[in-house]
Design a protein around this nucleic acid. Structure first.
Lengths: 227, 227
DNA sequence: CGGGACTTTGACGGGTATCAATTAGAGTGG
DNA sequence: CCACTCTAATTGATACCCGTCAAAGTCCCG
């Protein structure tokens, strides 16, 4: 599964692969645990590994010269992260929550000498990621704040939500600033837009980190680009 | 070479590869010519091939339900286009000018049984594309109209420009609407911004399709996100 | 109880979309 | 060669969404 915004929009640099790991026989891939706030890798680091997320949530960011930040994607269990450009990582990757990943050698992409199936799986993840990023372009370029926020919540709910008496509860482990930098908005606009969706009875905020989706149909409708 | 916006921002779905084709001995790849306005492939088409652009300019687009369009990227000679997600293309690709491409079988990505070097080259193109698209995110999300337009012109000039007496002349084969949909702006804003850059003596418009860059330093400076 | 970070809310201004009209350019046929 | 037409590009007027600046509220943890 993957954070694809209702089959129409999706974040980037993270792609889910039909997770068929931990068969025990694989050989090289190892596991790694990660505390909240710890970096999995940083921009400029030698790209020695590619990671499949087992548990936890990650944030991939890229920094602009003047300090501005773009959140490229959030990574959830099942996603693959760490595709390199050449020898180095070109994003920062930080664990938002405690997390666990499967570590693949980076050259699983280079050679097929090793595990052919792993190679193919990672390659397909890369191709799917390209497609997902293309979707995300449209969100950044053409959606209003309300549409962006609704898209984001719908995606998170599909990905991460738990049913509660007909409604869907969904945790937002990332900060408002993270959401803003992901959607191309400001913190204030994110907060205001959440308030607006709340006043329109689409959602309720149990606390700042937990959203209850009260009207999924309306939220999906709000996520579409208006005529 | 690739339309990377001054090593900082770049369009997407198109990646340049060190073009070492046409050695004659390769075997499978064939060539194909393309008239202006003709589609190389459409969204939903079976993805049978991957293309390396030899000459001409292509436009990759994705369409939103209500008719809105996002230009994912422009493809110039040296770029590789047509990465599939699964079995189908997920973008439209149209030749803006008359063009010529090298056709690779799609499964050059799937198997290594064929040309191992081609496989590796296409794979690297895909990885570079991911990185380029991440750059483009920041442009769409965080740049003003003037910064976007300046970035676009700088990129095109580096990619496509011809020196003319100390200045750089650069053709814009695509329409204003294409530029607008690429930068996430409207046609009117694109036009107004060009006028503004002209009045600030950074550029001159010989005709709507030909830009003369009169002050490259100023243009580059204008392409950076302001503090 | 108090400090600090995060979130929310408010007031305001600016940048860009929108609506509308004019101008320029390309192609066509007389 | 010159009207005529159609599309693309430019320019103008206006509205509004969202960013910015500022302040208050909330939560967490010591």
């Amino acid at each position: 599964m993957y954070v694809t915004l209702f089959n129409e929009f999706a974040p980037a640099t993270i792609v889910s692969v039909p997770s068929r790991q931990q068969n025990g026989a694989a050989g090289s891939p190892s596991r790694k645990s990660q505390g909240a706030g710890a970096h999995l890798f940083r921009e400029g680091d030698a790209a020695a590994s590619i990671y499949e997320i087992v548990s936890g949530v990650f944030r991939l960011t890229r920094v602009l010269g003047n300090g501005r930040r773009q959140v490229i994607a959030f990574g959830f269990p099942g996603d693959t992260i760490g595709f390199p450009k050449g020898a180095c990582h070109h994003t920062d990757c930080e664990a938002i929550t405690a997390a666990e990943v499967i570590v693949h050698r980076r050259n699983a992409l280079d050679t097929v000498d090793g595990d052919h199936e792993t190679h193919q799986r990672l390659l397909n993840a890369a191709l799917r990621e390209i497609s997902a990023m293309q979707d995300h372009f449209m969100m950044l370029a053409r959606k209003s704040a309300k549409e962006k926020m609704a898209s984001f919540l719908v995606t998170l709910a599909e990905r991460n939500g738990t049913p509660i008496g007909g409604y869907t509860s969904c945790s937002l482990p990332m900060s408002r600033a993270d959401i803003a930098d992901f959607l191309g908005l400001t913190v204030e606009t994110v907060s205001r837009t959440l308030t607006r969706l709340r006043k329109e009875n689409m959602i309720a905020l149990e606390n700042p980190q937990t959203v209850l989706i009260r009207d999924m149909r309306a939220l999906i409708s709000a996520s579409q680009v208006s005529e």
